[in-house]
Amino acid sequence: MTTPTTTSTTLPTTAVRARVTEPRARFRDLVAAEWTKLWSLRSTPWAFLVSALAVIGFNVGTAYDKYRYWSEADARSRADFVRDGIPLSIAFTANAAMILMLALSAIGATAIVGEYRTGLIRTTFAAVPARRSVMAAKVCVVTTVTTVFGALVSAASFGLTQAVLSARHAGVSIDHPGALRVVVASALLAPVAALVGMALGAVIRHSAATMVANVVILLLLPLVFSADRHWSAVVEHALPAGAWNRLVAVDHLPVAYPSTVTGAWIVYAAWALVAAAVAVTSVQRRDQ
């Protein structure tokens, strides 16, 4: 008597299972995820709102101060007000630029340091092993958001300050020589500062130390170096604040070693590109 044989269905072997992998995340999906993570923090909208109000408030406050005490200025000063480029220096003041750099560098740093502080970065990298792609998506989101923010704040500052000054017939329009450059340079200062903060956050990965580094690089170093000596001028011109000062300069005061407008734009681009590269590559071999 023979025993009938049955055909059994075998389960996939381990080797077969290994070949069945999930599809890689598309870059646009990573961008969408980073967009959600950025705006899921309650502090993000408030940080942008407070920063915008502070920057615009400083600029408009300076314009109102000129409006209020206009009659106390002598006739010659009032006559040379526009010719000397004072309306453009009020459109975006140095104090407002300092606030913008400090605030945006903090926002950029928080975008990465916050994930390391909560441990979310481990979950992210476990879900998407392509770490550089994740960071590249984060860089794209932060750059886009801060560029739009900078453009809105810069345009609003210019429009409101010139509206205040126009009440004294001292305002200028956007087609005034140098006006557009002031607006664009001030707008692009936002993403540059944010990328610097993100790069420092990706390297240092601690909130307090990252904020200190931001203050030193963006605010303190420009106060230490000047254009009076060649070596000092080289450093000063190579800093984001020094580049911004050259781009918005309207008085053209003589200095021993002046910079150029083209050189200032190059400094902007170099800081943004290097900071983005550091942020993307620094996560490749470090988990915490």
Rank of each mutant, 00 (worst) to 15 (best):
P4W: 04
T5F: 04
T6P: 06
T7L: 14
T13Y: 05
A18V: 09
V20H: 14
E22S: 13
P23W: 04
R26P: 07
F27R: 07
R28E: 13
D29A: 13
L30P: 01
L30I: 07
V31L: 11
A32N: 09
A33E: 11
A33W: 11
T36E: 03
K37S: 05
K37L: 12
L38T: 13
S40M: 08
S40Y: 08
R42I: 01
S43E: 01
A47H: 08
A47C: 08
F48Y: 15
L49P: 08
A52C: 05
A52R: 05
A54E: 00
V55H: 10
I56Q: 03
G57N: 01
F58I: 15
N59K: 02
T62K: 00
A63N: 10
Y67I: 02
R68W: 03
Y69C: 09
E72F: 13
A73F: 15
A75K: 00
R78E: 09
A79C: 03
D84M: 07
G85Y: 10
P87Y: 01
L88K: 08
S89C: 06
I90Y: 10
I90E: 01
A91K: 05
A91P: 09
T93R: 11
T93I: 10
A96L: 08
M101C: 07
L102D: 05
I107E: 11
G114R: 09
E115M: 05
E115C: 01
Y116I: 05
Y116W: 14
Y116D: 03
G119A: 03
L120N: 12
F125I: 10
A126H: 07
R131I: 01
R131P: 07
A136T: 14
A136P: 00
K138F: 02
V141H: 12
V145M: 11
T147W: 11
V148G: 01
V148W: 00
G150C: 10
G150W: 00
S154E: 02
A156Y: 09
F158K: 09
A163D: 11
V164F: 10
S166F: 02
A167R: 14
A167H: 11
A167Y: 00
R168D: 07
R168W: 07
A170V: 06
A170M: 04
S173G: 15
D175G: 01
H176P: 04
P177Q: 09
P177C: 02
V182M: 09
V183D: 04
A185I: 10
A187E: 10
L189R: 03
L189D: 08
A194M: 00
L195W: 00
V196T: 12
M198T: 09
A199Y: 02
G201Y: 04
V203M: 07
V203G: 04
I204A: 06
S207C: 03
V215D: 03
V215K: 05
V216S: 02
I217E: 06
L219D: 02
L223Q: 14
F225D: 04
S226I: 04
H230L: 13
W231K: 01
W231V: 12
E236S: 13
A241M: 15
R246P: 00
V248C: 06
D251V: 11
P254R: 08
P254D: 12
A256N: 13
P258Q: 00
S259C: 06
T260C: 10
T262V: 12
A264D: 08
A264C: 10
W265G: 01
Y268K: 07
Y268P: 05
A276M: 14
A279V: 02
R285D: 05
D287P: 05
Q288I: 01
Q288M: 08
Q288S: 14
